[in-house]
């Protein structure tokens, strides 16, 4: 089954699946970032550079890639990919608003994506096929919500392993991923509570595989991650798609109406969601994990911090670049933060 890459959580993986393709989230690897030097500038998202580096080294064989044109980095990545990496590139326009006009516009973009993929692979996309793909992802969403709930109750996996589950969900065909997830949930249902620790929530953009070390660090130093607001976590697959007569409209609505990323006009709604998440999980602090040079998320930190402070929730900002070099300094900062909490 051809593999099609994607990066941003606004990418409708259901459409790719409906064409009979396997959507594979590109996660990159910090040690491959050097291969992207000279193609993208130093001061650009390390996650995107490591994904590009991995592809340039031929270590992520793909038939093509769907790039949601959600930020400056992604738009420029699409340009570079189209010129220097074999395979097709489809650039998907994603609105920053979530009103009815934006939803209608995005619906049109999803139809165009399905048509383009269908033409390329000679598989006309039927609404039935799309409905089946949506139903399959809804099932995964339900299972991941159970895992998330266990985590909030202190039963779930260590944070690094939990992130690994999200990674597999974003890279494996659902038919192979779901049975493993069901088995894991059955095992965890009977598990006891994890040792008590300082409950914190992690918020931010995307975590590359090497960034999982930041999560492990938090738990190693006496914290416990009880919830997340991450592009590579619950923001990606939280909330089901309402299956109605028009699956494209349902998808457009779900993607635009989900908890917004910092790029969206209503980004401040995320702050409220975060407050609710902290209350629900009893988190005493929020550790904000942002890829370096991600202007939208970094600009968001100031107002988000102010909002959380108003609720008595403390925050810590950690900028990520996928390398262990950041961890020495991060260790000291996380340690101090948890002590204060």
């Amino acid at each position: 089954m051809p593999r099609v890459g994607w990066l941003c959580s606004y990418t409708p993986v259901e459409v790719i699946t409906a064409v009979g393709l396997t959507p594979v989230r590109l996660l990159g690897s910090a040690d491959k970032e050097a291969a992207a030097r000279g193609f993208l500038p130093v001061a650009l998202c390390p996650y995107l550079k490591s994904a590009l580096g991995t592809a340039l080294m031929g270590e992520e064989p793909l038939d093509g890639i769907v790039v949601a044109a959600c930020c400056d980095g992604l738009r420029r990545l699409a340009d570079v990919w189209a010129r220097y990496v074999p395979g097709f590139v489809y650039t998907l326009d994603v609105p920053r608003r979530r009103d009815e006009a934006a939803i209608a516009y995005f619906r049109g973009r999803l139809v165009a994506l399905a048509q383009r993929l269908g033409e390329r692979y000679g598989v006309p996309v039927s609404e039935e096929a799309l409905g089946s793909a949506i139903a399959a992802y809804n099932q995964t969403r339900r299972l991941l919500a159970v895992l998330d709930d266990l985590r909030a109750r202190g039963i779930g996996l260590p944070a690094g392993e939990m992130q690994g589950v999200w990674e597999r969900a974003s890279r494996e065909a659902l038919a192979t991923f779901q049975p493993g997830l069901e088995e894991l949930l059955a095992r965890l249902q009977g598990a006891g509570d994890r040792p008590s620790a300082v409950p914190v929530v992690v918020s931010g953009n995307v975590l590359a595989p090497d960034d999982k070390r930041a999560l492990s660090l938090i738990e190693e130093l006496g914290g416990r991650v009880v919830g997340d607001d991450l592009c590579s976590g619950t923001r990606w697959l939280a909330g089901e798609v309402d299956l109605g007569p028009d699956p494209y409209l349902a998808l457009a609505r779900r993607y635009l109406e989900r908890v917004p990323c910092a790029r969206m006009l209503d980004a401040a709604e995320r702050y409220e969601e975060l407050v609710r998440l902290c209350r629900r999980t009893g988190a005493r602090g929020v550790i904000y994990l942002s890829q370096k040079f991600c202007d939208t998320f970094l600009y968001d930190f100031g107002p988000l911090r102010e909002r959380l402070q108003g609720e008595g929730i403390r925050t810590l900002l950690l900028e990520l670049d996928g390398t262990t070099a950041t961890l020495g300094q991060s260790r000291t900062r996380v340690e101090a933060f948890l002590e204060v909490l």
């Binding site: 993208l40 400056d72 010129r83």
Partner: peptide, 19 residues
């Protein structure tokens, strides 16, 4: 002129240079 912090313009540089 590559203005520091201008991601959208600096990010296009390699493709523009080659093109």
């Amino acid at each position: 002129f590559s203005h520091h912090g201008c991601r959208q313009s600096q990010g296009a540089l390699r493709v523009m240079r080659d093109g």
